[in-house]
Design a protein around this nucleic acid. Structure first.
Lengths: 337, 337
DNA sequence: GTCTGGCACTCCCGGTCCGCGAGTGCCAGT
DNA sequence: ACTGGCACTCGCGGACCGGGAGTGCCAGAC
């Protein structure tokens, strides 16, 4: 394909993103210094349409990019534009003020939404690859304990444990000592096998309680691999008629953690940054949506973050923002190791 | 005011809520067995309009209730319709499956959204009136601790503590023992005064660390009185053109915890249930919105929950749902005391 | 006095029609 | 290979209009 044809495509993408209106040949010839006339641009446009990169909403209207067109733009034409120094400073400061892990995530998701003017989604650090830092047992009532697990990424998980018979304070302490001995420093993935025979290690009168505790622990690390996510910027959905249809399905999806995890998780894990455009998303409600995601974590990837917007988005800016934020968050987490 | 006039008002409110269209005199006379003709209804309507209970969107259209009209309806006309037995069972089962306190809140907010088909907001149990069950200190790095506070409502707070000099494991244990001795079982409100001179109680080499720990603890119980809230059902905002204008400001407000707290908190705390209709809300963006809130908690009120929808909502159903859910949640919390 | 049927009036809503303008495809000429 | 010109298409917005739902008021009935 011609070099100039690519330039025409770039012009169409950029103008369409900026104005949200189909762009015609005359506009392209004028606003971008291509050195050719509108008629020539028209010929190129006919070619690009034939090749599937652009389309006409209606006969005799301007052209808009197709998903395929955006894809080409992202892969070959979009020079990502880095954040300004001021922005970088602001990001850094805002994130380093975080109070705890929850706060890091909350701040991150807000930051992303604000920087990109889109909907931001951040996955809480995965439990999978972290290890147990400490386990705490507290009795709430004689037959109900609270189990608190602290991981080395700073995440805290809490669960109720209903024990079959009343437990004295000394029993609770013993159980606490025992599970900490068994599990401290161990990878979460190994927890289930390590506590399989917890009940066998304790005095008979504690056996039932220990078994129940083991069950809950296992659940905590396994079943709750279904991770949590934070969302912000839903109000940005209303920007300039994002979605032709109603935005109802999108709003609904944003409250479905499963769907969000799919969006984030399907990311190609060995790529630093993934852009899924339009129907590259397999979920039906997101056919007019682009999702930009990045992994983050100290060293290895412990979670993903991303933003979600209309296919007609500012790709260079969005990509730069997601990448920068992911990088900073990783740095912050690094400091806690 | 006439008895029949009240009936006319009720008819208008009910029909308008059901159809979302201005209701005319003929419809009222027909669909509700008032035993009078449309012309008579017209006279009553003229009176009601004069008195400010209803209004005409345009000359020669039907009538719609004003905020004042809804208020009268809620206060005197709306017999709340209790949940069906099946609904009650479902609520009870769903809530009692909760895994921990966070889960109780999450489930509650979803439940409310689903039952009322509106936006639900639930405040996490307030720290204010609860007391310290247990404090845990874990070192993340030599100079960074994580403080975990467990309250008797089952809430867990975590905070980073940066200490000025490296601490050995035995120092951490000592601090942990000390703060637990000082604070266990004490009301959160008393924490600041109880730890004011924490630094004076420890060996000189721990003094700086203790001071910092005391500072963070104080912050945790005081500054974080700014509470957290959970939201669900934002998608319901799209139901039948809820808001004439854009729903942008509403979506934005839903992400502003401060605003949500205002909405929930302004509730008359000695009333079981509060309904604020239209401009009874002092926040500008909620002038077309009704907020139904209830306090919950074991014994005393530790938090509020509520739903938020257009003034044209199904008051009897919504009120019943909020009341029932608040009651069940209180029961659940009661079991943990 | 209170209610009712009738009547003239108002005004919103939806459909139709139409002219403008932006944009295109194609063609002949450079 | 590019350009200017030209005829053609079609969406958009405004103007126009008739139907219908609803109202206010009045004179008469109970």
């Amino acid at each position: 394909m011609d070099d100039r044809k690519l330039e025409v495509l770039r012009a169409i993408v950029e103008d369409y993103v900026a104005t949200q209106e189909p762009v015609g040949s005359k506009a392209v010839a004028q606003r971008h210094a291509l050195g050719v006339s509108a008629a020539t641009v028209r010929n190129d446009m006919a070619y690009l349409e034939e090749a599937g990169y652009i389309q006409q909403p209606h006969t005799s209207a301007g052209r808009i990019p197709t998903a395929k067109g955006y894809r080409l733009f992202v892969d070959r034409l979009g020079k990502i534009k880095p954040l300004s120094a001021a922005e970088r400073r602001a990001v850094h400061r805002f994130l380093s003020e975080a109070i705890d892990l929850d706060d890091v995530v909350t701040r991150t998701v807000r930051l992303l939404a604000q920087l990109t003017h889109q909907v931001a989604v951040v996955q809480y650090p995965s439990l999978n690859r972290s290890s147990v830092r400490h386990l705490e047992l507290v009795s709430l009532t004689p037959t109900r304990l609270m189990l608190v697990m602290i991981t080395d990424t700073g995440r805290v998980e809490q669960r109720y444990v209903e024990v079959p018979a009343e437990l004295g304070e000394e029993h609770v302490l013993e159980l606490r000592r025992l599970v900490n001995e068994q599990l401290q420093g161990k990878a979460l993935a190994d927890v289930p096998s390590l506590i399989a025979d917890l009940a066998g290690l304790v005095r008979p009168e504690l056996r039932d309680a220990a078994a129940e505790l083991a069950r809950v622990l296992k659940e905590t690390v396994v079943a709750r691999t279904e991770e949590r996510v934070a969302v912000a910027g839903a109000a940005n959905l209303t920007r300039g008629n994002f979605f032709a249809g109603s935005m109802r399905p999108i709003l609904e999806a944003l409250e479905e953690e499963v769907v969000l995890m799919q969006l984030l998780g399907r990311a190609d894990s060995n790529a630093l940054l993934t852009v899924r455009i339009g129907d590259e998303n397999e979920i039906d409600d997101f056919r007019e949506t682009t999702v930009v995601t990045a992994g983050y974590g100290p060293g290895s990837v412990v979670g993903h973050m991303g933003v979600l917007g209309p296919t007609r988005m500012d790709y260079p800016g969005t990509i730069a923002a997601v990448r920068a934020v992911a990088r900073y968050v990783s740095e912050i987490l690094e400091q806690n190791r």
